[in-house]
Amino acid sequence: MNEEEAPRVHSFPPLVDEQSRILILGSMPGVASLEAHEYYGNPRNYMWRLLYSLLADGVPDERYEDRLAFALRHGIAMWDVFASCVRKGSLDSDIRDAVPNDIPGLLRRYPNIRVVACNGGKSHGELVKQFGDTPELAVRTVIRLPSSSPVPTRNFRGLDDRLAAWRQQLGPFLQTDMLPIR
């Protein structure tokens, strides 16, 4: 499939509620996630194992609906920086003709979100490029986390090194005084 034949893909609606305190912002769901209609639906992706390791016993619930409820129960929202893009495959480097989601609008609607945690460099770079000068981001903490993708990088080979980085960078914001009481 050449670039002209690559499909336009669309992100999911945000997973968020009034108790959300941390927005984990990806770039665009990969092929496996789009096919499963699930955030981080590729079983090789580390996202759910990272969250459950940070907040529970490390073993994600089997049912997707239970994983979503777990995230919300812990004040975690999820969305993607792009509403749609043209992309063949799942690599961020293949994203073309991207249309951003209305991140500032979401943050206005959910003012309890205090932290925007970008899942990887593409998410962080595009967030800053598109919305870095908005007041909605200026009043929040924005952090760049290593991608939860299973693709090894020079600095992050697998789950354990990603978990250590997530624990160091995101851990302070997961303290019980930051989380909603349910």
Score class of each variant (00 low, 15 high):
Val99Ser: 13
Pro60Cys: 03
Ser90Arg: 01
Ala83Trp: 13
Ala71Val: 05
Ser93Tyr: 07
Leu106Tyr: 09
His74Met: 07
Ile76Trp: 04
Met78Glu: 09
Phe82Tyr: 15
Asp94Pro: 00
Leu106Met: 14
Leu91Ser: 14
Ser90Phe: 01
Pro104His: 10
Phe82Val: 07
Asp102Val: 05
Arg73Phe: 03
Asp80Glu: 15
Glu65Val: 02
Ile95Glu: 11
Gly89Ile: 02
Ile103Leu: 12
His74Val: 01
Leu106Pro: 05
Ala69Met: 02
Cys85Leu: 12
Asp94Val: 03
Ile76Asn: 08
Pro60Thr: 02
Ala77Ser: 13
Ile76Phe: 08
Arg96Gly: 02
Pro60Ala: 10
Gly58Arg: 10
Pro60Gly: 07
Val99Trp: 04
Arg63Ile: 00
Arg67Asp: 04
Arg108Val: 10
Arg73Tyr: 06
Arg67Glu: 07
Arg67Cys: 04
His74Leu: 07
Ser84Met: 10
Ala56Gln: 09
Ile76His: 07
Glu65Phe: 00
Leu107Ala: 08
Asp94Lys: 14
Phe70His: 10
Ser93Cys: 10
Leu106Lys: 02
Leu91Pro: 00
Ser93Lys: 14
Ala77Asp: 04
His74Lys: 05
Val86Ile: 15
Asp102Phe: 04
Asp80Ile: 00
Arg96Asn: 02
Val59Tyr: 03
Gly105Ser: 04
Arg87Val: 03
Ile95Thr: 10
Asp92Arg: 02
Pro60Lys: 01
Ala77Val: 01
Ser90Trp: 00
Arg96Met: 10
Val99Glu: 15
Tyr64Ala: 08
Arg73Met: 06
Tyr64Asn: 08
Gly75Pro: 05
Asn101Asp: 12
Arg63Met: 10
Asp57Glu: 12
Gly105Met: 05
Asp94Ala: 15
Leu107Asn: 07
Gly75Asp: 11
Val99Ile: 13
His74Thr: 05
Pro100Ile: 04
Glu62Asn: 02
Lys88Leu: 06
Asp102Met: 01
Ser93Val: 06
Asp61Gln: 13
Asp80His: 15
Gly58His: 11
Gly75Thr: 08
Ile103Met: 11
Arg96Pro: 01
Arg67Val: 05
Ala98Trp: 12
Arg73Leu: 09
Asp94Leu: 13
Asn101Ala: 15
Arg109Met: 09
Asp80Arg: 06
Gly58Thr: 03
Glu62Leu: 00
Phe82Thr: 11
Val86Glu: 13
Leu68Met: 12
Glu62Gly: 04
Asp57Trp: 02
Ala77Lys: 08
Val86His: 10
Phe82Glu: 12
Val86Ala: 10
Asp102Cys: 11
Val81Cys: 13
Glu62Trp: 00
Arg108Gly: 04
Ile76Leu: 14
Met78Tyr: 11
Arg108Tyr: 00
Ala83Cys: 01
Met78Ser: 04
Pro100Asp: 03
Gly89Asn: 09
Ala77Cys: 04
Leu107His: 05
Asp66Gly: 01
Val81Lys: 06
Cys85His: 05
Asn101Glu: 15
Ala69Tyr: 00
Lys88Thr: 08
His74Glu: 06
